[in-house]
């Protein structure tokens, strides 16, 4: 699997990453190398093998439905880049 510039641009857009023009080629090469490395997997027949998502095949625990968190807005918004009237601010989204 070989990735070209346009693949890198497409992936970078999906991941919302700004990539400098001059770095695209290197990323394309690095990513191609990594994909070549992982392609070793394709030689293995894994038919009928159950994918393993959790090491111990544990199951989800349930939380009882109780409100345990109160209003922590001021505390939690101390780390926010831009807040106005309790709302997080982002550049205008046009719908």
């Amino acid at each position: 699997m070989s990735l070209d510039r346009s693949d890198v641009e497409k992936i970078a857009h999906l991941a919302r990453l700004n990539i400098a023009e001059q770095d695209i080629q290197e990323y394309a090469e690095n990513l191609t190398d990594i994909l070549d490395l992982v392609d070793q997997m394709q030689a293995i027949d894994t038919t009928d093998i159950k994918p393993m998502a959790h090491p111990m095949d544990a199951i989800q625990r349930l939380r009882s439905d109780a409100v345990t968190e109160g209003n922590q807005r001021d505390h939690l918004q101390t780390v926010a880049p831009a807040v106005e009237a309790g709302l997080f601010q982002v550049p205008k989204v046009i719908e």
Binding site: M41, I44, T46, I49, K50, P51, M52
Partner: peptide, 8 residues
């Protein structure tokens, strides 16, 4: 595929 290999 990777999760299957993980089980192996």
């Amino acid at each position: 595929k990777a999760l299957q290999i993980r089980r192996l």
